[in-house]
Design a protein around this nucleic acid. Sequence first.
DNA 1: CGTCAGGTAAAAA
DNA 2: TTTTTACCTGAC
Length: 317
Amino acid sequence: MKLDYKINLQLTQESGQTSQPSWKLIENEYCNVCLINETPILLKVSQNSFNHLEVNYELLNENHDINEKLIHNEIAKIYDLNFDLIKFYKFLSKDKKLESTIKFCNGLRLFLTQNPFESIISSITSANNSIVRWTKSIDTISSKWGKSYNFHSGTFYTFPNPKILSNTYEDEIAESEGYNKKTIENCINNLKACGIGYRASYVKKASKIFSSKINPLDIKSMNFDEAFETLIKIPGIGPKVADCILLYGYGFTEAFPSDVWIKRIISYLYFDEEDVKVEKVRTFGMEKFKEYAGYAQLYLFHFARKSGLMNKLKPKN
DNA sequence: CGTCAGGTAAAAA
DNA sequence: TTTTTACCTGAC
């Protein structure tokens, strides 16, 4: 199936958005299992020209009511295809400092996970961590505790639900005690063994909350401020992680996730290299970019990476 | 070997 | 209230 939209698929997939790791690349196609009307489907997305996507798919059996219209809708949601990039670029062009981001980010879109809870855990594990490490961890968590589906192209895993994750062992000590006689060295069936370090306790606590007190879908129906306030009360979620979850996990495009890099970039571009507090950067970004704040953040971050600005802004020691 | 990675929570000022 | 400090861990 061919879909006509302006997008750079590879850029979007691999830009390190915290909603999820990039999909598995198999022979030029980005592949992942999704649920459409409860039916597991393997989506296989590729791109040969800039203005359209090629979408193939696999189902487990004939017993389903999936049609291409449904798949189209799902793909549009995942890559935020109904967002008007041209209009956004007009907005960027009005600001000389933002205009140059376009040529480095042309076709970059939000990459939203189907499963908000995956984004929550993904964002928590991204804190004070490297992209390579947290994405690997999320993949490991999926393969350990997610549901597995054997498609023709291979086995794929959905992300485990909050209840399952809240019932995992936090570390090898808890696992060893749980099994009573297992030696510590043999304990790999715990959160810490997925490489998330001290964030294991955050993941466990957050999972507990989302399996009992809050349904991840509740966040979607809240307004932005209410959603933000709800999220930052959860262990492991501070302002930056909350904004990432809201933007990349739920599509609240008014969020402006502010980390050290965005702080350096904004300070450099708009405050004459003055050391501006992260909290002020957040407010500044939200007020200046409004409904485009999230996209502006994504573009500024990626622009800084690709243009060499990041190297320039990196502290000497 | 130290340092660092798209911060957060807890202690200290 | 604001500012330091410790923190898993694999890669460099």
